[in-house]
Each structure stands twice: as structure tokens, then as C-alpha cells.
Design a protein around this nucleic acid. Sequence first.
DNA 1: GTCTATAGCTGGATAGAC
DNA 2: GTCTATCCAGCTATAGAC
Lengths: 212, 212
Amino acid sequence: MVKVQGAQGDWRAARRRSARDAIVGAAWALVERDGLAALTLRDLAREAGITTPTVYAYFDSKTAIYDAMFGQAAEHFGDLMAAIPDSGDVRADLIEATYRFAEYCLHNPARYQLLFQRTIPDFEPSPQSYAHAVAALGRARDRLDKAGISEPRHLDLWTALTTGLVDQQISNDPGGDRWLRLVEEAVDMFLTHCASTSTAAVEAPKRKRARQ
Amino acid sequence: MVKVQGAQGDWRAARRRSARDAIVGAAWALVERDGLAALTLRDLAREAGITTPTVYAYFDSKTAIYDAMFGQAAEHFGDLMAAIPDSGDVRADLIEATYRFAEYCLHNPARYQLLFQRTIPDFEPSPQSYAHAVAALGRARDRLDKAGISEPRHLDLWTALTTGLVDQQISNDPGGDRWLRLVEEAVDMFLTHCASTSTAAVEAPKRKRARQ
DNA sequence: GTCTATAGCTGGATAGAC
DNA sequence: GTCTATCCAGCTATAGAC
């Protein structure tokens, strides 16, 4: 039996892809409920309405499933970043982007954990899946670039600020909005800071401090 | 055989405590090397130079070990916060405090994970251990209070900012200083912001936005 | 591709001698 | 308190019939 390209091959490939997607979907349902580390193949198979060996017909290993989840989450995240409107109002757009990012993470804490924290032992995304993540972060960077934030230091400060808000929200007030409602204030703080320091060499006379 | 208070009882209690400390110490060594989730009782016993059943002579369960680790880490963290000098220079003290916090977390990522993230399935600190954590955070808050930062919003913004820096550093540049070297800039940004908004009701006309 | 059945292993926890 | 020996549950992964 030789694999044939063409209509039938596409068909099978599509079926296979949708079966894979169904399994990954079941995996998301489970990890959103029980936590990322609690995923087992037994539970996964049951949730997907199949048996464990069938899972292995579509994925080589449990790690391969995490990898598919990682790639999918990164892709979704990239789409989210790309879909943020560009009204021309820097402040409004940045606030909107941050809300969307925060809400994405808050509504999908497992995705946040998989994408932005390193908590699964022995799991590292494949180059392929990681490329999705890099692309998504590139989109986020473009977005900031449009807002006039282009200095690497500012970009890093921005990621620290936004992920910090999200992290505190998830860890210490899940389901609430204690940190979420600080988004606008944080954006203002950040923009003010950038405006006052982005003029090239304002490397103020700070005492040097070699650490780490 | 009746337990007797007094010199001999103290003696035994002290021995028992030091044995417990040795086990917890071995646990730290392992989790700093292999990650918090990778801890097993077999490895732990080997590292401590004992056998698994002996571990159970000192701890009721694996969770009890995590709990002891949590309490110890919280206590250490509290000591760290209490030891920060109070020079009267708000900016310098805050920078120093942040550096110490960041370095503590960076040098002990497992402690950071245990204290500030919720990643171990089914583990929740006992009220007793949690009390240590609350006390430590209280000390950190007192520290900010002295610096004139007392509004709850500002405190929350501060925790988001600092943990965000640490989190990015650990996740994306372990062993480096890409985010660590932004500490002074972040402190300045934060202090400037507080100075310009702490005057009571500067609740600027921001569009209301009901989310979550 | 899907199942039943099970291998092979590792984990937390315990029994019982000393 | 400490050990040897072991239980039992849960896991990932595979063999082999259909």
C-alpha cells in the first residue's frame, strides 16, 4: 500500500488532523479543570471517548501531547495579539491589548502555565512549536513598536509588568479582579515612564551595581 | 512509659527537630537541582542518608514535607525582609529591598515556586505554615509603608511589578541579569508614579470598564 | 484504527524484625 | 528509630486480536 497524494490523501490527512484536534481539545478540558500537571493518559482517553492505545495512534508520547498543546496555545495567542485593533490612540490600544492578554491568561490559566511558566518536568517545546511562540511574541513586540515603545529595556519592563499583574491575579485572587483593575493605572505609569526616558541617552547617574 | 517534661524531654525534642531539619535540608538540595515537582521520597531518603520508612518516622506524608519546606521558606523570607536596612533614603532602601528579594528568588527558584506560585497539585500550606507567610508579607508591607507607599492599589502594583521582574528573569534568562538590571529603573518608575497619584482622589476620568 | 489485556515501572506508604 | 521487604495504586507504553 503506497501513500497517494491527491484528494484521498488530503481527506485522510484532514480526518487525522481533526482526530488529533479532538484529543488535544479533551486534554485542554482536563487541564483547565485539574491543573496542567494532573493530566494522565487514562483520563485523557476517557474524556476523548477512546482508549489509551488509540491515543498512541495519534501521538508518540505524552510529551508529544503537551507539545501539540503548546503549539496550539501559542498559535491562538498569536492570533489574539494580531487581532488587537489599531486605533491610533496609543494609550487606548495598549490598555486594550493588556486587557485581552490578561483575560486570555485568566480564562485559560493552564495555557498561561504551559506557555509562560516552566513547570512540567522534562517538557521542552519542540523547535516547531516553539516557533509559534516566537512568532506570537514577535507580534506582541510589533504592537508595542507601533506604540512607540521600541527600546529593548522598555520591552522587557513591559513584559515584566504585564505578566506580573496576571501572575498575581491568578495566584492570589483567582476569579476576582484585584490586579486586573490596575491595568489602566499600570499602562499610564509605564507610558509616562517611557515618555520621560526614551530620549536616547538619559542614562541617569545611577550608582553602578554589579550583582548576580 | 510516660513522657517526662524537663531536661531530657527537651533534649529529645531538639534531636528530633534537628533530624527533621536534616531531612528538609536534603529535600531543598534535591528540588533546587531537579525541580519542585520531581521530589520523590526514595530520592529524598537516599539524599538524607536514610531509608524511606525512616522519613515516615518524622513526617506523616510527602505533603507534610512540602508543608515543612513552605514554613521554613516563609520564615527565611520574613527574616530577609526584616533585615533590610532603613537608611531613610526611600529610593535606595526600596532598590536594596528589591535586589534582595530578586536575588533570594533567583538563587532559590524552588523556594520561589513553592512560596509564590501554586504548582504542586493537591498541596496547600497548613494554617500554621501559612501564618509564617502572612507574617513575612506583613513585614514587606511595613517596609513599603515606611517608604510612604500605603495605598492598597500601590501595594498591589508593587507586588505585580517586582514578582513580574523576578518571574521573567527566572523563566526567560535564568542565570543572567536581563531583568535584574531593570530593578532601579522599575523602582524609579514606580516612585514617580506614586508621587504623582498618591494625593488622594486623583481618580482621573477613566472610562469604566466592567470585565471578567 | 480501535479495542482488550497487560507489561514494566515508579510512586507513596506500611508490616514487622531488630 | 531504623532497617529489609513488600504492598498496592497509578502511570506510560506496548502486544496482539479484530
